[in-house]
């Protein structure tokens, strides 16, 4: 039935949220640490690379089982690890910025509720929730960031090449791991209305996320010098803290909490669903929600590991160096399989 098809905008916002979500966390800070004031150019370079990858793969024939069993298991392992890390980061961020008195388990519990209900509500629920809230989240965030722009200092964006051209080029490649979630975009092709809408959604996703990432990162770099920023707060939160408009709501920090938590809930639900979807397709499992809970339990128990915060820093150093290969090379599997089916 046509009911199972996803429209262009739904697909777009789903993946814009999946990609840009980490920019509400610490990604802008991380970008600045690698490229300094040259971040703008680095982002452009990254997107050019990603567009090249995307246009290389976009017209391939893709079916449900394209990733193959081994490929899927590898991807699932990577994503489970990354979602567990993100879940932990969310939890700690919320504890730092708002619910300072609450226990970590309580906050994580709420995230888990959102994650499991999201995954259970299936692709339809996830898409609807995204089309309602994702534009709202990005609109609110961008409006808030722009309204803080009176406090921006654009000289901070120069020298334009920051830490040097070589460092920008290599980091642009390594930071393609930002697009890790975009790999899953290919798995949703069977849901898409037709080839045209799929390709349009891909283009739009990359364009919108380019705009969002660019604005957030550059505004952050322009408003905080390195010694004025505080590591423990997410960059966007720091920008929004600068706003002070007299009238009724003096402070907008809490609006950040609203947008941030909405985005996080959507991300977790969608990721759990997509991981399970990948698994289901690879092993051709029928039945409604057969193995969803085990995946949820794996993610939850991984994120409860106490040493995880050390793992987060370690993974930024070592794992991300390799993760760029996934969005670039993983779709290769698709071509092989896809051609076979053709």
């Amino acid at each position: 039935m046509t009911c199972n098809k996803i429209g262009t905008l739904e697909l777009t916002f789903l993946f814009v949220n999946l990609i840009c979500n980490k920019f509400f966390l610490f990604a802008p800070e991380y970008f600045r640490a690698t490229a300094g004031s040259g971040t703008g150019i680095m982002i452009c370079l990254m997107f050019l690379l990603m567009f090249a990858v995307w246009s290389f793969y976009k017209r391939r024939n893709i079916t449900k089982t394209s990733f193959g069993k081994m490929g899927s298991i590898f991807l699932i392992a990577v994503f489970i690890f990354s979602v567990a890390l993100t879940l932990r980061q969310y939890t700690e961020t919320v504890k730092v910025i708002s619910l300072t008195q609450a226990s970590l388990y309580f906050i994580e519990g709420i995230f888990i509720i959102a994650m499991i209900t999201g995954a259970y509500s299936g692709i339809k629920g996830i898409c609807k929730a995204h089309i309602f809230y994702a534009p709202l989240i990005f609109a609110v965030m961008l409006i808030l960031i722009v309204s803080a722009s009176g406090k921006l200092d654009f000289y901070m964006l120069t020298p334009v090449f920051g830490n040097g051209i070589q460092s920008i080029a290599t980091n642009a490649l390594f930071l393609l791991s930002t697009f890790l979630e975009f790999t899953l975009f290919f798995t949703l092709k069977p849901f898409s209305k037709d080839e045209k809408s799929f390709i349009r959604a891909g283009n739009l996703t990359l364009l919108i996320s380019f705009a969002v990432i660019m604005i957030i990162t550059l505004c952050y770099i322009a408003s905080f010098s390195e010694n004025a920023s505080v590591e423990k707060y997410p960059p966007v939160f720091q920008i929004i803290r600068l706003i002070n408009s007299g009238a009724y709501f003096q402070r907008f920090d809490s609006l950040f909490l609203i947008a941030f938590s909405l985005s996080a809930y959507l991300y977790l639900g969608a990721m759990l669903f997509l991981i399970w979807h990948l698994f289901k397709n690879a092993f051709e499992i029928e039945g409604k929600n057969a193995v969803l809970m085990p995946f949820a339990f794996i993610i939850i128990s991984t994120s409860f590991i106490n040493a995880l915060s050390d793992v987060i820093t370690a993974s930024i150093k070592h794992v991300d160096v390799f993760l760029w290969a996934i969005p670039v090379l993983m779709p290769l599997l698709l071509i092989k399989k896809g051609n076979k089916i053709q």
Partner: peptide
Amino acid sequence: AGFFGITLGLVISAYILSH
């Protein structure tokens, strides 16, 4: 849980409404 809880309600209600 403050706004954090209210957004949970909003997201879940979107999931439910979509079905």
